[in-house]
């Protein structure tokens, strides 16, 4: 086929492109993914008895700040990565800083407490639930974000896939924190941070295949 012919075909009855399509796609993806994860959590654990209070309020705030911070940083990266070109590094640095801050807080909390309490702090109740449920809750947001990015045109598939995994994992963790934030700061650093990183690695591996266009 001649290139001129192709250009005539592409240009015939040209469609008008409205602005803001990508933004709308992201809002839908995050809302659908987040709500699906929330419903799954409620179906498994039931409504949290002390969603906005109780003895774990402080830890709940820490867990929420950590996970939702990652969601915000990761999403701002993805919004840019959906367009061809360099998405910039600021959101990546922000996400890395959140991890560093969370880990440091965990280490500090261990240092200031008795070594005899360490085992209980790190392997608090529900660590296995964390490890299992955060990736489980991440599945729906992962799928919806892959759908959103497929409507864009990402050019670095591995990095974009990794960030999709990170945002999905962080959303899954935020939903899990509504149920139970865990008993200590080191617990959050390890059993929230670990599964989120795991989701990110899986995202990087799957991204290359799923995001191709």
């Amino acid at each position: 086929m001649k290139t001129d012919e192709l250009i005539n075909v592409l240009g015939a009855n040209l469609e008008v492109v409205k602005g803001g399509q990508l933004r709308r796609t992201f809002v839908i993806a995050l809302a659908v993914g987040g709500i699906a994860a929330l419903c799954l959590m409620l179906a498994i654990f039931g409504a949290p008895t002390d969603a906005f209070g109780g003895q774990y309020l402080g830890l709940k705030i820490v867990a929420m700040a950590f996970t939702l911070g990652l969601v915000v940083a990761g999403t701002s990266f993805l919004v840019r990565a959906a367009r061809p070109g360099e998405p910039g590094r600021t959101p990546l640095i922000l996400a890395a800083l959140l991890f560093v801050a969370m880990l440091s807080a965990g280490v500090v909390a261990l240092v200031v407490s008795q070594p005899t309490a360490w085992g209980e702090m790190v392997f608090g109740p529900q660590w296995a639930a964390c490890l299992f449920c955060i990736p489980l809750f991440a599945i729906a947001p992962f799928a919806s974000l892959i759908w959103a990015l497929r409507r864009g045109a990402p050019t670095n598939l591995v990095r974009t896939g990794a960030m999709i995994g990170l945002v999905a994992g962080a959303l899954g963790a935020a939903v899990f924190a509504l149920h139970h934030p865990g008993g200590s700061v080191p617990f959050i650093a390890l059993w929230y941070g670990g599964p989120i990183v795991l989701c990110s690695v899986v995202g990087a591996i799957l991204g290359r295949r799923l995001l191709r266009w």
């Binding site: 592409l10 492109v17 959906a82 864009g152 266009w213």
Partner: peptide
């Protein structure tokens, strides 16, 4: 070139 033209056309909405 033609693959790229099709891509440019179908991904027009990703241009800011």
């Amino acid at each position: 070139l033609q693959e790229t033209l099709i891509a440019l056309h179908t991904r027009r909405h990703t241009y800011d």
